[in-house]
Each structure stands twice: as C-alpha cells, then as structure tokens.
C-alpha cells in the first residue's frame, strides 16, 4: 500500500519553495515579465522517483506551486527527479525533451518557454544589498560579488574544459563523446541486426518443422 503523505507536509514544502522562487523572481524583473506571457498555463510535473506531484501556474509575475489541481493542464510531464534536473539545466530544452526519458503530454511549447525563463534567470543582487547597506556600500559590494561570480564561472568552465582534455587526450582514461556516440550507434545497429537474424532463424525453423510434418 502506498504511503499517504500528510497534505499539510507537502503544502508547507511547496509554500516555502514558492516563497524562495518568487523572491528570486522579484529580483529578476525581465524574467518576471517573460513569465507573464505564460499566464493561465498550468504545468503538471509528476515525479516518479521520489513520488511527488506538483503543479506550476505562472501569473502576475509570480509562480504558484500547488500539490493539487483539478482543472485543465496545459502540459503534463512524467519522469524521475534526475530526468527533470536534466531538462531544467539543458542548454537545448527541445533536444532534452526529445532525447530524454521524460514522458510528455499536451503542448510542449509553453514548457520549453518556462524552462528557458528558469535557466536564464538573471537575478539582480544589487537591489537587496543597496536596500540594506545603502547606495555606495551596496553598489561596491555588489560589484565585488559580480566580479567574483564572473571570475568563478570563467574559472570553473576553463577548469572543466582542461580536465576534459586531460582525461580524453593526455591520460586517455575515457574516449571522447563523439567516439562514444559512434560506438553506441554501432551497438544499436548490431542489436537490430541480431534481432532481424533471430526472427529470420525462427521463420526458417518454423518452415523446416512444417516441411517435416
């Protein structure tokens, strides 16, 4: 028997999450405006592992999170938590939806739009800092943090690139992505040929049995 989660529990979690998301949206006015274009759309996300169901409804520059919704849903997506994480962080959400393991029902265009808004969330951290520290100190600190963040992002992407090159080219610990994709394609084709051969052998066996009878 499936365990029934107390509605108060997941409602509290969604309330906290909604608060955080909307606070972030308040600091990203451009994304908020984009979100309004999706007003009246309802997205149902059914996560199978762990089993959670959440409905997202944008509107008035906010995102509403609900555990229950009994109306018409624009887009419904089913998959595991890792599948959803893959979609949320994908550079190309369309490709992620087509090639991924997510099961999609309804209109995919608003979902892709929502993913783009979330992944390009441009939060203006300066506004709350200025509110607390004042114009001069807040601006200075925000500039320092912006510089540190940009340096960190560049450093991490550079490090990632170099590490990839070292693993593939220098240490030869792992084949490059294209080589690996080629290999998988060959394996897939081999699998198909084996299946065809198996069915041909079965057909021959059946015909031999008929001739003997």
């Amino acid at each position: 028997m499936a365990t029934v989660i107390d509605p108060a529990l997941h409602t509290a979690v969604f309330a906290a999450l909604e608060r955080v998301i909307n606070r972030a949206l308040e600091l990203a006015p451009a994304n908020r405006q984009e979100l309004d274009s999706l007003a009246d759309c309802v997205f149902a996300l059914h996560c199978t592992a762990p089993e959670v169901e959440v409905y997202l409804q944008p509107g008035n520059g906010r995102l509403r999170l609900m555990g229950y919704y009994d109306g018409v849903v624009t887009t419904s997506v089913r998959g595991t938590a890792s599948d959803f994480a893959e979609l949320a962080t994908a550079a190309d959400p369309t490709a992620a939806l087509i090639n991924g393991r997510l099961e999609l029902n309804g209109d995919s265009a608003p979902l892709i739009e929502l993913q783009k808004i979330i992944s390009t969330l441009d939060i203006d951290w300066e506004a709350p800092l200025v509110e607390v520290l004042g114009d001069v100190a807040g601006h200075q600190l925000a500039q320092f943090l912006r510089g540190a963040y940009s340096w960190g992002r560049q450093a991490s992407s550079g490090l990632g690139r170099q590490l990839e090159e070292f693993i593939h080219e220098e240490a030869r610990l792992c084949p490059p992505r294209l080589e690996l994709e080629d290999f998988y394609r060959d394996v897939q084709q081999l699998g198909l040929r084996v299946d065809r051969l198996q069915s041909r052998a079965q057909r021959l066996r059946k015909r031999l049995r008929q001739l003997r009878e």
């Binding site: 108060a8 555990g67 009994d70």
Partner: peptide, 18 residues
C-alpha cells in the same frame, strides 16, 4: 503558524479560478 498551511491547502483544493 500551521493554520496558514491548512488554509493554503484549502485554497488549492477549492479549484477557484479567475
């Protein structure tokens, strides 16, 4: 503060729309 969560769930289940 849990009464706010109870009321929030009520709103969700109400299915009230624009």
């Amino acid at each position: 503060g849990i009464h706010r969560v109870w009321k929030r769930f009520t709103i969700e289940l109400s299915g009230v729309r624009s």
